[in-house]
Design a protein around this nucleic acid. Structure first.
Lengths: 256, 256
DNA sequence: CGCGATTTGTGCACGTCTTCACAAGCGCCT
DNA sequence: AGGCGCTTGTGAAGACGTGCACAAATCGCG
């Protein structure tokens, strides 16, 4: 990827957030830290140790410290991290200081649920518009928003300033929708359709696929069953127990 | 940990899958390959080159070959891979030869959509039972299944042989549900609740979180905006264009 | 039967991520 | 003030994942 390190570049003026292309793995964990921090703030804590926050976020404390170190030193040794300060910092880095508008395309089974999901607003996202290709669904009202026909996408997108598009259509329609979203200037897409989207360079696509998650779990289930079913293969049952084969870090493996 | 009663008949007489703990990243991609293969089979192809399949699955061809090499050599040089044979192999490795039963807990906004999702059955999963803690929801019928109270979980789980539990409850209830699932012998959990679950060793948890995905996209959006907004900072505009900053591999990054 | 075109399988080098271990820094208590 | 315990921040090492490039293998054709 691009690493532009200019030795000659003079110090940046001002306290600019200093976008230091932080590692992708770190970015994927920041939201989890953020949620843990909000929980801690609600309970009244105003400082946390890396150990405590790591625990709340389900990660290793060393990893957490390294992650946070990437966005500057906002902790004090011997004490820990200031909760509200850290919240502000992470939100700033993630670009959550401004409320981002989301366009949701596909108001079927899943899309309907997403439209009604209150986790959007609570995390600083606003559903700006709903679209569907099915004329019988157009006009329906969900959560105070009216479903419009997908052909109006370009017109509506011009009014509202869409920064993220969510695709919740059946697979065959997804690529066409993605093309339309890209055409109106959307550069971030969250795809729930079980298919691969091809988009031009510079457009980010993240995919969420229920079936894939289940199949991955199925694999591990299958493996565990095979191992326990087979009579101890030369290895003593004693060594098998203490966790040699335990896959403990599945929890955060999804994000990356 | 897992008091797993393995199915009575030792049916696996054929070629042993030869469980070679394949890399986690590979496992996460196999379902995508599987889907692409099914698509190809539907179109009538009976062989594919690694290039073709990689294209359909949205990955590098070298990566695909290495992935497939991990589960044995099922391709012929100069020709490619036999589609149906490869399908069988991957399904066998993923443990999809048997239909796995899923218990879904939490029939709220999202849970309702999941219960009606037809991607379950089409991928070899069967929703065996629905649960909810809200008495007003108990008794409701969704997709031919009746919603039962979550207290009946242990009784029902004894009848049906649940292999995967899906949690779609609000965050505060998730941990208790996870504990109950673990108590009845479930060792694979798919968690849609926005919180960290703590489970004993040997239990796999995968998490799907809409808000986190949006926040990750928000970060990239924020970064892209900052870069284009700033007047070219010493870096030549020429080098900036050809894709230095394009994050092209976000697509499959989620699974892992 | 042999040759060339094609495609798989893989050794190797590289980059990224994780984890350990510890020095540096901070606050508190005496 | 000084020492002590606690916590951060980070260098280094190792594990893991990726991509290139090429040898080995196979098919089709003359």
């Amino acid at each position: 990827m691009s690493q532009h390190r200019h030795p000659g570049a003079p110090g940046r003026a001002g306290a600019v957030p200093a976008l230091p292309d932080l590692p992708e793995a770190t970015v994927a964990r920041l939201p989890e830290y953020l949620r843990a921090l909000h929980n801690l703030a609600d309970v009244g804590h105003d400082t946390v140790s890396s150990e405590g926050l790591a625990n709340a976020a389900g990660v290793n404390s060393a990893k957490l410290r390294k992650d946070l170190s990437h966005l500057g030193s906002y902790g004090t040794r011997g004490v820990g991290y200031d909760v509200s300060l850290l919240i502000d910092q992470i939100e700033s880095v993630l670009g959550l200081t401004q409320c981002r508008s989301v366009a949701l395309v596909g108001v079927g089974n899943l899309g309907h649920a997403l439209a009604g999901y209150d986790g959007f607003a609570s995390r600083g996202f606003r559903i700006a518009a709903l679209f569907d290709a099915d004329p019988s669904r157009v006009g329906e009202q969900i959560n105070g928003l009216v479903v419009r026909h997908v052909d109006e996408l370009s017109r509506v997108a011009a009014e509202e300033l869409i920064s993220i598009g969510v695709i919740a259509t059946p697979a065959p329609a997804a690529q066409a929708v993605a093309d339309q979203l890209v055409a109106v200037g959307v550069t971030s897409i969250l795809n729930f359709a079980p298919c691969v989207l091809s988009v031009p360079e510079g457009v980010d696509v993240r995919k969420v696929d229920l079936a894939i998650e289940l199949q991955i779990l199925s694999f591990h289930e299958h493996r565990k069953a095979s191992l326990t079913a087979l009579p101890a293969t030369a290895g003593s049952a004693l060594t098998a127990l203490p966790g040699g084969l335990a896959a403990t870090d599945t929890q955060e493996a999804i994000g990356t």
